[in-house]
């Protein structure tokens, strides 16, 4: 069947709830309304208000509640309505959710999934287009993933809910309406494995979440220039699958890393630093980055100039090839 990414995630949550009574879904407007992006549509009708429920507008309370429920044996799925709304809950994320297993010497696990629609591209107002993955990746104790395909929307949601540790699932909101075939049951690669989506020989382009589609389009466009791009879907930002990246770099010798988040300290910096260390003698050029700018996210009318696009990726590809 052909479904959207939003529907695939919805089905993933649905099937996880059907398979395990301990799975709960809660957040702002996720129940009666079915979520502002309709990702949780019909779940409350199916599973009732005890298992799918609306919360007050208090993100800190949402994550705090998720931690408490997880301690008592539930497997909560909590939604932050928008990326920029996760900041009021930052303390619960960094001091408690991320550290409980470590502080209790492994005795208290927190199987919490936090779903966060993130990134720009939908013409939203300020604070609604953030790419905060750098904080999450930098916080030891959190796992961070981002699906870039419809199948991963389903499978990574299931895998995150099944994991015994907290997983932040960054859902690319601009791709919620992206359609593809989904045949169930589907299992994709393990949650923290990167995947080569398109083999190539000249330059490796690494992307995740919303930028995967853009990277694939860049690879199509590059063909016309006679460049063969290998596209790697990173999928997991913490931990990072270094082996798959090194293997690709051994084939191409050149790499461009793409994300919407600002350049400073972003996952692209982490990957570039790793490749410098792990694959130095395979490098034909420095690892280059095609990212958002080091400014706050602009008003909607300017976002097309701010977000990385095919041109920005290909400019960096050309630069890498010129070395």
């Amino acid at each position: 069947m052909t479904v959207t990414l939003a529907q695939a995630i919805n089905r993933g949550i649905h099937d996880a709830m059907e398979a395990d009574d301990r799975v709960l879904m809660f957040g702002e407007d996720v129940g009666k309304l079915g979520g502002v992006f309709r990702v949780t549509d019909t779940l409350q009708e199916t599973f009732g208000t005890d298992r799918v429920y609306d919360t007050p507008l208090a993100e800190s309370g949402i994550i705090g509640t998720a931690i408490g429920l997880a301690m008592y044996g539930f497997r909560p799925v909590a939604e932050m309505q928008f990326d920029g709304f996760a900041y009021p809950a930052f303390e619960q994320f960094t001091s408690h959710l991320a550290k409980m297993r470590n502080r209790s010497r492994g005795r208290v696990k927190l199987p919490v999934t936090v779903r966060i629609p993130f990134g720009g591209g939908i013409g939203a107002v300020e604070h609604h287009s953030e790419s905060p993955e750098t904080y999450w990746a930098h916080t030891a104790g959190l796992k961070v993933v981002s699906p870039g395909t419809v199948a991963d929307g389903y499978a990574m949601t299931r895998a995150a809910i099944a994991a015994d540790d907290p997983v932040i699932v960054l859902e690319p909101k601009r791709r919620y309406w992206m359609k593809d075939d989904l045949e169930l049951p589907v299992t994709t690669e393990p949650l923290h494995k990167a995947v080569v989506r398109r083999p190539g020989t000249d330059v490796t382009v690494v992307a995740y979440g919303p930028m995967l589609k853009t990277a694939m389009e860049a690879a199509d466009a590059a063909e016309e220039e006679g460049w063969s791009l290998e596209v790697v879907d990173l999928r997991s930002l913490s931990p990072i699958d270094t082996d798959t990246l090194v293997a690709s770099l051994q084939r191409t010798g050149r790499m461009v890393v793409v994300h919407e988040a600002a350049q400073s300290l972003g996952p692209a910096a982490e990957i570039a630093a790793r490749m410098q260390q792990e694959a130095f003698y395979h490098l034909e050029a420095p690892i280059l980055r095609a990212t958002g700018y080091d400014t706050p996210y602009p008003p909607a009318m300017l976002e097309e100039f701010w977000l990385p696009d095919v041109d920005r990726i290909l400019d960096r590809v050309e630069e890498a090839l010129d070395y």
Binding site: A137, A140, S238
Partner: peptide
């Protein structure tokens, strides 16, 4: 380690 300032410094210097 992940996404610390060292990653940014290394990336800039490498480039």
């Amino acid at each position: 380690r992940l996404c610390g300032w060292g990653s940014e410094v290394v990336s800039l210097v490498a480039e």
